[in-house]
């Protein structure tokens, strides 16, 4: 007689007891949260609280002082470099400034990961690169160098590069900061479309309230004073039910008298 035991599905991303530090100074400690598949998680917090630092730990740029991040139940940092690099191939990362490789055109920027990790022909790569650029509203800019386009366009091209390989997990570091409202709205739509269309899990570091309420399924809030995670819930619920004065002030742009500390 056989018994079918349904496996209990674990969230694909779990951050457990993570401590982060810069040169001996603890930035955040004991951070715990998990992200479900195809969820959009927003990392919020005041300036300098370590949002981007948390992202740097999650994408493999900075080793945590303690704790670990688990992707599909595999430890990310304590699992060895080969395992980590294999995992990183399924990430797409968009940096605050775009971080395009300045010696390459936009099309070449997007093509590089495709050349490295796919068996596509040069023609196919060119087509994919053009399509990804059109997704971020940069169709026709294939042969421009990063220095020839504006900061906002660099940012969007950075997103096109991040999604070049249709990654499972996409990280966005302050994607809408410095963008005009229309580009910002377009970006929110793109993030939602990437999730709905490709089933990607998306982690966004941002403090744009409009964006947070539009895209986030779930959010975490890092506090620079208490140096830890102080909330983990959908932002709309946080706005309604959180009793923490700081979170209320953050989500209401500092409106006084909502809830007193």
């Amino acid at each position: 007689m056989t018994m079918n035991v349904m496996p209990i599905e674990q969230p694909p991303i779990q951050v457990k007891h993570l401590d982060m530090a810069y040169g001996g100074t603890i930035v955040q400690k004991d951070i715990n949260f998990s992200v479900q598949k195809s969820e959009i998680l927003v990392i919020m917090g005041d300036s300098g609280c370590g949002k981007s630092t948390l992202m740097r730990h999650m994408v493999g740029l900075k080793k945590p002082v303690a704790g670990d991040i688990f992707y599909n139940n595999e430890p990310f940092w304590s699992g060895g470099i080969t395992q980590r690099e294999n995992r990183m191939r399924h990430f797409g990362v968009m940096y605050q400034s775009g971080a395009l490789w300045s010696s390459m055109t936009l099309a070449e920027n997007i093509s590089l990961p495709l050349q490295e990790y796919t068996t596509l022909t040069a023609k196919q790569i060119k087509e994919v690169a053009a399509f990804k650029l059109s997704l971020v509203g940069l169709a026709g800019y294939e042969d421009f160098y990063p220095a020839e386009i504006s900061g906002g366009m660099c940012k969007r091209a950075g997103i096109a590069r991040a999604i070049a390989l249709d990654p499972e997990i996409i990280f966005f570091d302050e994607p809408s900061a410095g963008l005009d409202p229309i580009s910002s709205k377009r970006l929110d739509d793109l993030i939602l479309a990437l999730r709905d269309g490709l089933g990607a899990t998306i982690i966004v570091v941002t403090h744009e309230l409009a964006s947070i309420f539009t895209i986030a399924d779930n959010a975490i809030f890092l506090d620079s004073e208490r140096k830890t995670l102080i909330a983990n819930a959908p932002p709309k619920e946080l706005l309604k039910h959180s009793t923490d004065a700081k979170i209320q002030r953050f989500l209401t742009r500092g409106a006084e008298g909502v809830i007193q500390p």
Binding site: G60, R89, V93, W101, E116, G158
Partner: peptide
Amino acid sequence: SMQVNEEIDALKTTVI
């Protein structure tokens, strides 16, 4: 300047 512009980080996360 590539380090300042996060271009090196972008290479690292692309596993290059």
